[in-house]
Structure formats: structure tokens, C-alpha cells
């Protein structure tokens, strides 16, 4: 963000409020994602229901941020870094909402898994979760601090998450053959892994928006150098 103050203080106030809203939305989304994983580890169906219900607040925030962003565009016709900030916020907000959707999907899968008294093997899933939520946190930090290098590191980490998903799918598919009576459980675990992989994709999108907001560089669809 430009360090100097805008001649119109109302613009600075409105843009700061919008940034505050998207950071709050990110906090709520992260909390939902953590709760969704607790559903799996702690096996609590009430928590599953609460996580699913919490999505409503995030949906409302998305609509509110979109409306405020459009109002800023309409009222002030911003350009350069101001325009990039607002466009990035609107896009980040959309990706956060989709991450929250994935949290709900995970909670729904967990509710099904929890019907079985035998706990599932969640070690590999936990590792994927740590990777995915780390990417969400760092992409939002990169946006908040205009840290292009941190954002780039998130883009590189998405490949690792994809590989983890691939490895887990191989393991679970093999296990399904060995323990066919629990094939439904393993399918649910496969879906949860897939949802976490999608969380990583959205974190990658947020990191791309953070880079665009900070430097005007559009890195979408570029191949990340190994």
C-alpha cells in the first residue's frame, strides 16, 4: 500500500476498513478449517455441525466485502496501487469463501467417518492439513505485509501438497484392497485429502493476488521454477 495519506481521508478509512474485513474473514476461515480437522481428530459430531453452521458468517462477510469494494470503485475510481488493492481484496475474499466451503466439506466427511467406532488412520491427513493451513496463513501474511517473496514461497509449496495428496491416494487405494470392509471410510479420507488439496489451490490463488497487489506482477499460470 502507498505509505502516504490520500488527500481524501474517507478513501483511506474505507480502504483500511476493507482490508480489516478481509483479514478478519481470513481469521474466521482459518478457525473453521482448524475446527474441521478437529472433527476428524477429536471425533466430535457436535463440532462437525458447528463448523458447518459457521460457514454462514463467512458467506455474509464475502457479500459485505464485495459490496464495499464495489462501492469504493464506484465512489473513488481508484487507479494504480489503490485499484490493485481493491481488486485483490475482492478476489482474495472469494478464495477465502471457497476455503470455508472446503472446511464444511471436510466436516461433513468427518461426520460420516465418526459413525464408525474405529478411529481412522489420520497421520498422513494431518501432515497434509499442516501443509495446507500453513499455505493459507502465509498467503494472507504475504498480502498483509506486501511480502512478494513469502507469496512466491506459497506458490512453490502447492506442488508439495499435490504430491502429498497423490501419495496418500496411493496408500489409501492399496489399503482399500487389503481391508475391503472399510472401503467407505477410506473413500471419505480420500475426499478429505482432496478437499485439503483444493485448500492449497485457493491459498495459491491468494498468494498470486498478494503478488499482484504488491508489485502489479501477474504470475498466474506461470510455471514455478524448481
Amino acid at each position: 500500500m502507498p505509505a502516504d495519506k490520500h488527500i481524501l481521508s474517507r478513501f483511506d478509512e474505507a480502504l483500511e476498513a476493507l482490508r480489516g474485513d478481509v483479514l478478519m474473514m481470513a481469521s474466521l476461515t482459518e478457525k473453521n478449517l482448524r475446527n474441521a480437522m478437529r472433527c476428524l481428530v477429536d471425533r466430535g459430531s457436535n463440532l462437525c455441525s458447528a463448523t458447518i453452521a459457521d460457514e454462514g458468517e463467512i458467506d455474509e462477510l464475502e457479500k459485505s466485502i464485495d459490496a464495499d469494494g464495489v462501492e469504493l470503485l464506484r465512489g473513488f475510481q481508484p487507479v494504480a496501487s489503490d485499484l490493485r488493492q481493491i481488486v485483490s481484496i475482492i478476489k482474495i475474499c472469494s478464495n477465502l469463501e471457497r476455503i470455508a466451503d472446503q472446511a464444511v466439506n471436510i466436516a461433513k466427511r468427518c461426520r460420516k467417518l465418526n459413525r464408525d467406532p474405529n478411529p481412522s488412520d489420520t497421520e498422513q491427513i494431518n501432515a497434509m492439513f499442516a501443509q495446507a493451513i500453513g499455505m493459507v496463513q502465509d498467503s494472507m501474511s504475504a498480502y498483509r505485509m506486501s511480502d512478494v517473496n513469502l507469496a512466491r514461497s506459497v506458490l512453490e509449496r502447492d506442488k508439495m501438497l499435490d504430491q502429498m495428496n497423490h501419495d496418500l491416494a496411493t496408500t489409501l487405494t492399496t489399503t482399500m484392497g487389503l481391508v475391503p470392509e472399510r472401503i467407505t471410510d477410506y473413500l471419505n479420507l480420500l475426499f478429505i485429502a482432496r478437499h485439503l488439496e483444493r485448500v492449497g489451490d485457493h491459498a495459491e490463488n491468494i498468494a498470486e493476488d498478494a503478488i499482484y497487489a504488491a508489485s502489479a506482477e501477474d504470475v498466474r499460470h506461470n510455471k514455478v521454477q524448481a
Partner: peptide
């Protein structure tokens, strides 16, 4: 110029952070 100006003075002027 209006999406990503190279000079800070340009950025400050077009975004209303001048003077």
C-alpha cells in the same frame, strides 16, 4: 501508467497522495 506506474511521484499523483 494507470495500473502500475514506475515512478513514485506518478503513483502519488494519480492515486491522490500528492502534496
Amino acid at each position: 501508467i494507470f495500473a502500475a506506474p514506475k515512478e513514485k511521484k506518478t503513483e502519488d499523483y494519480i492515486t491522490g497522495r500528492f502534496g
